[in-house]
Design a protein around this nucleic acid. Sequence first.
DNA 1: CGGGATATTGATTGATTTCAATGTGAGTGG
DNA 2: CCACTCACATTGAAATCAATCAATATCCCG
Lengths: 231, 231
Amino acid sequence: MDAVRQINIDKRSATLQGVGGAAGGRPYDFLTDVLRMLGTTLTYRRNEEVFGEGEPSDYVYLVVTGSIRTYKLLADGRRQIAAFCLPGDIFGLDAGETHAFTAEAVERSRLVVTKRSTVLALARRDGAFAGELWQIAAAELERAQAQLLLLGRKNAQERVATFLLEMAERTASSDMIRLPMSRQDIADYLGLTIETVSRTISHLEHDATIALPKSRQIELRDKRALAQLNA
Amino acid sequence: MDAVRQINIDKRSATLQGVGGAAGGRPYDFLTDVLRMLGTTLTYRRNEEVFGEGEPSDYVYLVVTGSIRTYKLLADGRRQIAAFCLPGDIFGLDAGETHAFTAEAVERSRLVVTKRSTVLALARRDGAFAGELWQIAAAELERAQAQLLLLGRKNAQERVATFLLEMAERTASSDMIRLPMSRQDIADYLGLTIETVSRTISHLEHDATIALPKSRQIELRDKRALAQLNA
DNA sequence: CGGGATATTGATTGATTTCAATGTGAGTGG
DNA sequence: CCACTCACATTGAAATCAATCAATATCCCG
């Protein structure tokens, strides 16, 4: 645990009294730095499980490359994907002793892994850093709440439009987006079936709202129209 | 801010390294104590707004009596209720500077209100307390994720069964539950229409799974059957 | 150049929504 | 004390959106 001591605690950027809803940039730079410095890089194959629901939450993960899906299952196999984690995202930092969901690699992914206890030890010594853990959980909560609105109240077109805009925003390649996940993954994220997702995408293509040079590569041609559908 | 100093910081019960998924009891006793000691009690009338989405998050709330709904709206008025807050629950503790949702009193409610800045000041001086804020956000996140599964993948019967069991568990009056909220509120929480909720409840009544002496008072007669539907 | 997984498209079904009455109950005023 | 009223809840019939069932089509990948 001496490695912890070597981190310059004052070099953090987010603090407890800090912004939170900051305009640009990821507000968790300090934790990200910690993970990068102390963590071990692991590679996961496509569809490989990172951890399962109910397993002890011993590690915290930072996505370096690739993408991760987190999900819950019903007894009969119905699946709801809670989030896709993209490069720069942190996941697995549950407050409880066990993970509340399963995490799997969507595609071959490189993750930086650090012991949760290390992060907690650091947080115990630094209130501002502890505040960053809170900010992370709160940001995820806000995302989840937006997803509740989508799942509870939006129709298929609106869900797909919201998803495409979200992906465009997150990958920052604004207009041409690469989808690492299958249609089934998208369906399980949006609470639809694969057929409905496919049909809805086709419909948007006929509208010329989007173009799809390849099934997993989508060009947003009319963001205005998508935004209209978004809410 | 001197009042902060008077709190015995060592009298807390939840700490950063603390349990989280603890069996019984609410794990946020310290924050609850803080709010009770420092807060002002306010009463809200039925349907009165506590705060609106986008307003500055200046205060933190503890429900003493009554119940609160938190929700988001779409532009055309579709509403998704994210949570019902019951006595003992804390809400409004957003990490960001503005609230991500609206909060309203479902019925006449008494709340203890404390300045957010007070809570943050305390957290800055005490890492374990800061950890408690994290635990609260993480617990809410976990609840939201369970709700994602419900909204994305459960049918109407399963949603209602889950809701009834949840209410029974939370009010601890295990078998006879009082519903402070209208059918419309329940519908907007479960992502259904009022008619579907009503029909589903009627169906459960015909099954003798439940009995409803009054429309807002439900007796769970066959929890086994409900649990079956729950997942 | 297969071949298996992934994706699209079509036809049909079905659960939930929508539209439309009707019922019920708590509070009010005659 | 009872009729009235308004909000809330239930029930029924019809419409609709998405799911299901069923073929293809396409794309990687070896």
